[in-house]
Simulated assay, not measured.
Amino acid sequence: MLLTVLVLLPAAGLFLRVLQENSKQRDNVQLEQDGVEYLTALGPLISALAESQSSALQGVAAEPASVTAAVARVQGVDERFGEQLGTKTRWADLKDKIAKLPKVTGSDDKVYTAHVEVADLTIELFDVVRESSTLNRDPDSDIWFLQEVVAQEMPVAVTAVSRMSDLANRAAATTGKVRAGLIVQFGYQALKVQEVVGDLTNGLQEAVDNTNSDTLSGNLVSNLDSFRRGIEAANRGANLGGSPNVSTLVTAQSTLQTALSALSGVILKEVSSLLDDRSSSLTYKRIEAFLLFGIAIVLIAVAALWTRGRARQAQTGFTEQPGEASRDLSVQVGNGNPYGGSNSYDSVPGYGEVPNYGGGRERSGALR
């Protein structure tokens, strides 16, 4: 019993450590999946805010329907995951500012600044979600690059292209120092677009090179091509070094928003699929650990019973049987008669045969 306990305790300790690590990894995967769902809702919001900015600068005070739908969707995921992701307070503040955007009146600078503030807060919310969900610390290279693209570079690309188009529109309607200042801002956003697009493309390439997914490369190709065409159109409209082409920029903005929305959907779907595969693998390992621990217990019990049985058999083998000592003693400690009689004359050897035991004297002549 003591041997059984000494073997079972380390096995149980090892099993518990494996189970705790497995549970920790499963909880982390679930947290990342919650983050992916939150990011899926934030993607349409950043595009809707870009549309709202353009509409407001054109004098449309009403909130676009796309903003209303996007806010409702983010509100839904925040109610489910906001507590564990730590987004409730930040989202409540952002939601309040979005609701106030249609009430912002005055100069274009005031309207533009209000929308820029809201868009920047939305980009910060992207960062909070990917950090709180630990997506930005994922151990797999493909997931890490994909989350970097979809949660950091794509929102910046959407807002930068939108600001390029709106700044070009405003510059076309002004002159003098105001126009010069707007052109400077436009140039800054154009350079940011080029930088972000380069990082985005490199990140997607790294993800494809380091993934085990059979579908990632194929799903990215068509959407990435549409995105690149939109970027090329935006670069033509930007016309760095010359006057921006407003109509080309507006078309490029629309194309890019559609392409980025589709690309974002593909990336998030792939990330979710990769996390599902990891979750399934961890579940299999959990079941495997339980089975191995159960088998170990059975084997230890069988070994203990077998060892105990062998010990009993060995103990029984050392115990003397009844009468065994007297029989041994009669043979070894006799009175000199090897024939087992009560005295030396109970059994007489054949005539003429006189055994001599231990050098004793021969029988008397009368007996002969």
Rank of each mutant, 00 (worst) to 15 (best):
S279L: 11
A303P: 00
R363D: 07
N335P: 01
L299Y: 04
D346R: 03
Y357F: 14
E288C: 02
P349Y: 08
Y284K: 03
I287R: 08
K285I: 03
I267H: 00
L299S: 10
E288V: 03
V271Y: 01
S330L: 14
S342Y: 03
A303Y: 09
P355F: 03
S273R: 08
A296W: 08
A304G: 12
L292S: 09
R361Y: 09
T307L: 11
G365T: 14
Y284A: 09
V331G: 01
Y351Q: 14
L291C: 06
L305I: 11
T283M: 07
S281T: 11
I300T: 14
G341W: 00
A311N: 14
L268W: 05
V354R: 08
S279K: 07
A301P: 00
L291E: 03
R308K: 07
G265M: 01
V354Y: 15
F293Y: 14
P322W: 05
G340Q: 04
R312M: 11
L275I: 01
V333T: 11
R363H: 06
S326M: 05
A314V: 02
I297D: 05
L305N: 04
E270S: 05
A303H: 05
L299K: 03
V331C: 02
G265P: 00
A325K: 10
R327G: 03
R310G: 01
G317E: 10
V333H: 11
V348E: 08
S364F: 05
P349D: 08
S342K: 09
L367A: 12
A296V: 13
L367T: 09
G317L: 15
R286H: 11
L268Q: 08
L291H: 00
E270A: 04
D277I: 01
A304I: 00
E362M: 15
R363P: 07
S342T: 10
G352W: 13
T283P: 00
S347A: 12
Q313N: 10
V298Y: 04
Q315Y: 02
L282P: 15
E324W: 06
G352D: 13
S273E: 09
V331K: 03
D276N: 11
G365W: 15
D328N: 05
R327N: 06
S330E: 09
Y339A: 15
S347T: 14
R312P: 00
Q313H: 07
V354I: 15
R278E: 11
Y339W: 13
T307E: 05
L292W: 06
S279A: 15
T307W: 04
N337W: 03
N335T: 11
N337R: 05
K269P: 00
G317D: 12
S342L: 04
L291K: 09
N343G: 14
S281A: 15
I295K: 02
E324K: 04
G336N: 12
I297F: 05
G352I: 10
G365C: 06
V333M: 07
I300R: 08
E320F: 02
V333C: 04
K285S: 06
R312D: 08
A366T: 06
V302H: 01
D276T: 13
S272R: 09
